[in-house]
Design a protein around this nucleic acid. Structure first.
Lengths: 199, 199
DNA sequence: ATGAATACTGAACCATAATTCATTAACGTG
DNA sequence: CACGTTAATGAATTATGGTTCAGTATTCAT
């Protein structure tokens, strides 16, 4: 039992598959991505994937869940902190998003292109995480409005979607040469768009 | 010959198919949408669709092309006008986008959810229209920066993607109750997000 | 070293749904 | 009203690729 667990940790086919799938999904898109190609890149047989994941969708689901969980965690962390302005908190969250993208550009691409996935796919866990994150961002914006930091004619729900959309597409436009910028540079640029728009 | 043309105009199966497809694509997403369902809604046989379109993808392509062509046209119109500030022009374009959405919410949804389609699908005509539109928006932002209307630390390409992304997701968040707002209301809100961000 | 347990494999299976095409219907013309 | 032409049909075909599973390899405890 212990040995099995240990073996699993070293080998970690689960993560190898996730990584291979991320590459293929990012390149081909979910629907055109072939399990056989994922298996090839992972260096395993196609059937093996089904020992680790229920089906193709479950792989994408896990990729989404991991990313969104990280964002959700950061949002919760910020919520707890009291001596920080909403503006500072948004700066922190922006940095976390850039960190996430920087760590894995393929995943960032997937989050953009397969956006409709989590939107239409009502899987409990994923759906809860995403919706919870959105609610937390909404709260943050609400706080900012109350504190007179943001325009008070803003609808926090609209703004949330606008921010998410802006971030996604901004990522999409860069995707390939994203890594040629420094993290600080990217964080700064993104933060400014969110807060100041074009003016 | 004349009769054929006239008959075609009345009957206009081409547009009927496009309309039916828009509904199904918006509801199910492109990949899950069935040709048989589109045919059913259009009130025709499945095979008939193939008399008007090469394949399923060509239908989606045409839906994209029509929408983007309209935006491109508006952008070109604005480019020609000299006595108008970039801000006013952006207001006009925002209004056009809202108009487009208002006319057909299904199409708006498709533009959001199937974003990856035109992005990955390198069909000459569509690709050219989209890229041209993006270039025109970039020019407009560039003008705004030169005229000291926009922040001068803005990268016009980034900003373009940020705007497009913001618009798309903002639409996505509303999609279902979009029609419960007035056009002017929507235009105003969207314009303000683009220009002023949150502050 | 051996056998039981576990992990892996990839060819075969199967479900789905896009597309085709032989057939039928509708139309326009003389 | 026939008859040629064009349009429409939907059942049958076909392509695709996700998923299964019978067989094989590997690991591990004794």
């Amino acid at each position: 039992m212990v040995q099995y667990s240990f073996y699993f940790m070293i080998d970690n086919k689960y993560d190898i598959i996730l990584d291979a799938a991320s590459q293929v999904f990012a390149r081909e898109g979910f629907h055109k991505a072939k399990i056989s190609k994922i298996a090839e890149i992972a260096g395993i047989g196609a059937g093996t994937i089904y020992l680790y994941f229920k089906n193709k969708e479950a792989i994408l689901e896990e990729i989404f869940l991991r990313s969104w969980s990280r964002i959700e965690m950061k949002l919760l962390e910020m919520k707890k902190i009291k001596n920080m302005t909403p503006l500072q908190k948004i700066a922190e969250i922006t940095a976390e998003i850039i960190e996430l993208i920087y760590a894995n550009v393929s995943v960032a691409k997937i989050l953009v292109y397969e956006y409709s996935f989590w939107n239409s796919n009502k899987k409990e866990k994923l759906s809860k995480t995403v919706e919870n994150s959105q609610k937390l961002i909404e709260e943050l914006i609400s706080d900012g409005i109350k504190a007179n930091i943001f325009r008070k004619d803003i609808n926090s729900k609209d703004a949330t979607m606008y921010i998410i959309g802006g971030v996604w597409f901004w990522i999409a436009s860069k995707s390939d040469d994203l890594l040629s910028y420094s993290k600080d540079e990217l964080t700064d640029t993104l933060f400014n768009y969110i807060i100041y728009g074009l003016k």
